[in-house]
Amino acid sequence: MKKLLAVILAVVLALSVTTLVACQPTADINVGILQVATHTALDGARQGFKEVVQAWADEVGKTVAFHEQNANGDPNNETTLAQTLVAQNHDLLLGIATSSAQALYSNTQSIPVLYTAVTNPAVDLAGLGTIQGVSDMNPVAQQIQLVKTVVEAMHPEKETIKLAFVFNGSETNSLEQVNLAKAECARLGGFTTVDVTASSSNDIATALASNQMQAVDCIYVPTDNLMAENMNIIYAYSTPNNIPVICGESGMCDAGEGTATFGIDYYLLGQQVGEMAIEILEGKTLDNPNQFYTRQCEFFINEENALAMGMTQTQIDQIKDAFQGE
């Protein structure tokens, strides 16, 4: 008797659950989004993407539902979530960051997949068939020029600038940016560089405390996922030591204590890939499936911090003029 009741209860529960799920209102358009982890840049891209697609949907009078998943940095989660999104058979999928894009592309050939926030898609998404999206390769050369300008303003007497690259040695996109940065340093001349690497948040403080960091004039942090989540550790070192920090993108500077950046606006990046999505949802093929970020790069300087580091207001204004014009 008891067993029978238990079985009946279980069946009723299962049925009600399935009906509940099935009864969710279906939208005209379903878009799946997979993001590797949470930080300002990736969130900004997602925001920009959603707003552009939503605006278009409202215009043409359709409903759109976004199915968002975040892997929280766990590669096993990422696989499961990618499989889930593919199984849900959406109209379009967006992968934000390299590993998410890889996970989506390797699980479906039939659903259109867009990538964004992938620094070097030609290399990192090679072999996955046809890829389309917007890369977030940032203007590294100009960022190094910004380094030179800021340090010269602070220490006009110096002949060589010692520049420390702080990044996660295991992220290929960071390595690529650092190599580009070194090329620009060589071209401009007057730089000595050191690589300060860490592969997990526990190692960052130790790396910063090493001998290499002695007499460093400036820190450059590329758009590195690990560092982006841990900028506070870097600032805990740089601020007391009066070292300016030039970041790969403004989200990392926004944390309050970065000095300056000239970089990609990830919100606009999201909008750019959103526009590609609209074309695909309208059934068109893209003329330019693999784009680089084409919008205006954003200049940002933290004036309070710059003044505290010893720059004068005139110098700050000069830098602003030089970079804001571009």
């Binding site: 590993s99 998404l125 072999g127 996955l128 040695g169 295991s170 290929t172 592969s199």
Partner: peptide, 16 residues
């Protein structure tokens, strides 16, 4: 493991 990967966090082999 990091050494095996050549000091990177991951290695992919799509298409192989």
């Amino acid at each position: 493991n990091l050494k095996i990967l050549g000091n990177r966090a991951n290695v992919s082999f799509f298409g192989k």
